[in-house]
C-alpha cells in the first residue's frame, strides 16, 4: 500500500462480535446525557423548572379558590382534597418526567427521526422516552409533593403497618399506570400521526380529572375511570384507602388493593399496543 506517510491508516485488528443489545441500561444513560446537555444553560433550565412548578402551583391555587367557596366537594374537605391532588400530581408528573416525551411520536414519524431511532440497537421506546429528557419536568412534581406531605401530616390517618407498607406500593403502581397511559397514547400515533391531542385528553385531561375527588363526576365516570381507563388508581382509590372511607359511589372496598394488579395489566396492555403500533409502522412505513 503506497500510503503517504502522513496519512493515518485504519487499524486492522479483527472485528469484534458486538454484544447483544440491552435497552434497560440505555434509559439512565440517555437520560443522563440529555440532562448534562440541558445543564449547559443553567439559567434557562432554572426558569423552565420554575415555570413548570408554577403551572401546577396555579392549579393548586385554583383548588384553594374552589374550596374557599364550597367547603366540601362530595363530602371531601380541603385537606382530603389536597391528599387527592397530591397523589394525582405525583403519579402524573413523575410519569410525565419518565415517559412524557413519548407523546411526540407523531412528530418524530413525520420528521423521519423515528427511522433513525430504529437503526440503533436500543428499543425505540426508550429512545423516545428519553428524548430531550430534562429535570425541568420535576418542577411540576414539587407543588404536588408539598400538597401530599402537608395532607399526610394534617389528616388524621390511622397509620397501621399495612397502610405504611401499602403507601409506597400504591404510589409506585399509580406512576406505572400513568406511564402506561402515556405509552398507550403514543401507540395511537402509529396509526393516526396527528392524534397527539387525543392522547393529551387522557394524559393531561386525566390529571385534571383525578386532582379532584372522583365522586363529584358521578357514578358512570367513576366506573369508567376504574374499569376502562383505570385512572381512579392514580389518586382516588389510594386516597380512600389512606382515609379509610367507603366509596361514595358504592364500588367494593377490595378495589383499593387492586392497584398493583391494575398496574401489571396496564403494562401488558401498553406493551401490546406499542408492539402492535410498531409492527403497523414497519409494515406501512408511515
Amino acid at each position: 500500500m503506497a500510503e503517504p506517510s502522513t496519512a493515518r491508516t485504519l487499524t486492522t485488528e479483527p472485528r469484534r462480535t458486538p454484544p447483544a443489545p440491552r435497552s434497560v441500561g440505555a434509559y439512565p444513560l440517555l437520560a443522563w446525557t440529555w440532562m448534562r446537555a440541558m445543564a449547559q444553560y443553567p439559567v434557562s433550565l432554572l426558569l423552565l423548572t420554575f415555570g413548570q412548578a408554577a403551572s401546577t402551583g396555579l392549579e393548586l391555587t385554583a383548588l384553594f379558590f374552589v374550596f374557599g367557596h364550597a367547603h366540601q366537594l362530595a363530602g371531601f374537605g380541603i385537606n382530603e382534597a389536597l391528599l387527592i391532588y397530591g397523589l394525582a400530581g405525583v403519579a402524573f408528573c413523575l410519569a410525565d418526567f419518565f415517559m412524557g416525551s413519548v407523546e411526540r411520536l407523531g412528530e418524530h414519524v413525520r420528521k423521519g427521526s423515528f427511522d433513525t431511532m430504529l437503526v440503533r440497537p436500543v428499543s425505540p421506546l426508550v429512545q423516545l422516552a428519553t428524548d430531550e429528557f430534562s429535570p425541568r419536568r420535576l418542577g411540576k412534581v414539587v407543588p404536588a409533593v408539598a400538597a401530599l406531605c402537608y395532607a399526610l401530616a394534617v389528616l388524621d390517618i390511622d397509620w397501621t403497618p399495612a397502610r405504611i407498607l401499602m403507601l409506597p406500593v400504591l404510589i409506585v403502581s399509580s406512576i406505572v399506570i400513568c406511564c402506561c397511559v402515556w405509552t398507550l397514547g403514543a401507540s395511537i400515533q402509529f396509526f393516526i400521526a396527528d392524534a397527539r391531542e387525543v392522547a393529551n385528553s387522557v394524559t393531561y385531561g386525566g390529571q385534571a380529572m383525578t386532582e379532584y375527588p372522583l365522586a363529584i363526576y358521578g357514578r358512570s365516570v367513576v366506573r369508567t375511570a376504574t374499569f376502562v381507563v383505570p385512572l381512579a388508581f392514580a389518586s382516588w382509590q389510594p386516597a380512600l384507602f389512606l382515609l379509610d372511607r367507603p366509596d361514595p359511589t358504592g364500588l367494593p372496598e377490595w378495589l383499593r388493593y387492586a392497584a398493583p394488579g391494575v398496574a401489571l395489566l396496564m403494562s401488558l396492555a401498553a406493551t401490546l399496543a406499542w408492539r402492535t403500533g410498531l409492527r403497523h409502522y414497519r409494515s406501512t412505513g408511515s
Partner: peptide, 26 residues
C-alpha cells in the same frame, strides 16, 4: 432489527442520527 443494528452502520444524508442539541463529542 436491534441485533442487526449493532452490526451495521446507517447514515441518512437527509437527516441526522446525531442528537440535535448535543455537542458532537457528546
Amino acid at each position: 432489527r436491534t441485533r442487526l443494528a449493532a452490526r451495521i452502520g446507517v447514515v441518512f444524508g437527509q437527516r441526522t442520527t446525531l442528537w440535535w442539541d448535543l455537542p458532537l463529542r457528546d
